[in-house]
């Protein structure tokens, strides 16, 4: 099993969850999975939009309590 890097971006407003994901995506290797934790409602739509546009792979997105867990695999 490959490790999933968890990025805790809960309760942050600047630079915000998507910026955090982009930061860690740059540091990751192709094939790595990142799990973004976010309390920002916008993340549920913002993150998939970016992932699709840039060409990475959405693995899943679910809300547990108040926290969105969004999993993305680096594809390029």
């Amino acid at each position: 099993m490959s490790d999933t890097k968890v990025i805790d971006a809960c309760n942050t407003f600047c630079p915000g969850p998507l910026m955090e994901l982009i930061t860690y995506m740059k540091q990751a290797e192709v094939g790595d999975t990142l799990e973004l934790l976010s309390t920002d409602q916008g993340s549920a739509s913002d993150v998939p939009e970016w992932v699709e546009k840039v060409g990475h792979e959405m693995i899943g997105s679910e809300k547990v309590g108040e926290v969105w867990h969004i999993k993305v695999r680096k594809a390029k």
Partner: peptide
Amino acid sequence: YPINRIHSIE
């Protein structure tokens, strides 16, 4: 700008 609005703070 990198994300889908013109600044990270909404």
